[in-house]
């Protein structure tokens, strides 16, 4: 029997709409951007999804330290794993997009650097987990690192844009070619559902991985 929650149906419906609408609905004709503006529906939601998943992972780490239940540790790791997947996808899609619009895949833009640092932190988190044998200790040490790293990642969101006045990303610098879509109601119709849909898909992926891990834990695999 397929037991499916309502929000999973919602995810499927929203993402179907995002794919069809995102590729077919009209978009504003802007110089340089042209049709590549449609990547917005797939690139930006990856970052929202990543931040949401990392936040959830940090919350689970706090709950682990409060209650010392290994379940919370499993939640925390797997949420971070899916967060990394989203981060990598966001980075790859962004680099493709940047290659066609900004002329080069990596232009030391504050948001690019910030995402690179976020990925570094969470890769380090997995290296840390790999190097501790004892289960309880691994859970505890990595939970502490998770919280510590997340709390230093947040100031970066405020610091990096301040250091570079000339971001290529819209919203923090002179970038006339991009500001148009901020106001385009046509694109909002697809963009907001896309953010919600991709974030839900991330949590869905995480719940599948968590369930698998819990079952194999129980079976002693």
């Amino acid at each position: 029997m397929l037991r499916t929650d309502w929000w999973k149906w919602l995810t499927m419906a929203v993402l179907l709409y995002v794919f069809v609408g995102g590729l077919l609905l009209p978009v504003p004709r802007l110089p340089i951007l042209n049709e590549t503006i449609r990547v917005l529906y797939f690139h930006v939601p990856m970052w929202f999804g990543m931040i949401a998943l990392f936040t959830a992972s940090c919350i689970q780490a706090i709950r682990y330290l409060a209650k010392e239940q290994l379940t919370n540790d499993i939640f925390s790791v797997l949420l971070a794993e899916v967060g990394i997947l989203f981060g990598i996808l966001g980075m790859i899609s962004g680099m493709f997009w940047a290659n066609y619009t900004w002329g080069e895949p990596w232009s030391s833009d504050p948001k690019q650097n910030m995402s690179a640092i976020a990925l570094l932190i969470y890769f380090a988190y997995f290296v840390l987990r790999g190097s501790i044998k004892d289960e309880q200790q691994r859970a505890k040490i990595s939970a502490v690192y998770n919280i510590f790293a997340f709390a230093t990642l947040i100031p970066l969101l405020f610091i990096l844009p301040r250091l570079a006045e000339d971001s290529l990303h819209p919203g923090n610098g002179g970038n006339p070619g991009f500001n148009a879509y901020d106001l385009d109601s046509q694109m909002r119709l697809v963009f907001y559902p896309a953010v919600i849909g991709w974030a839900l898909l991330g949590f869905w992926l995480a719940t599948i991985k968590i369930r698998y891990e819990l079952v194999s834990e129980k079976l002693g695999l």
Partner: peptide, 26 residues
Amino acid sequence: LASKTENNATLMAILGFPIVIPILLM
């Protein structure tokens, strides 16, 4: 944190560098 692990010298750099980036940049 690193002193609890097996190869602590390497982990010191891996864990520490991403965390100090905000401080270092500022």
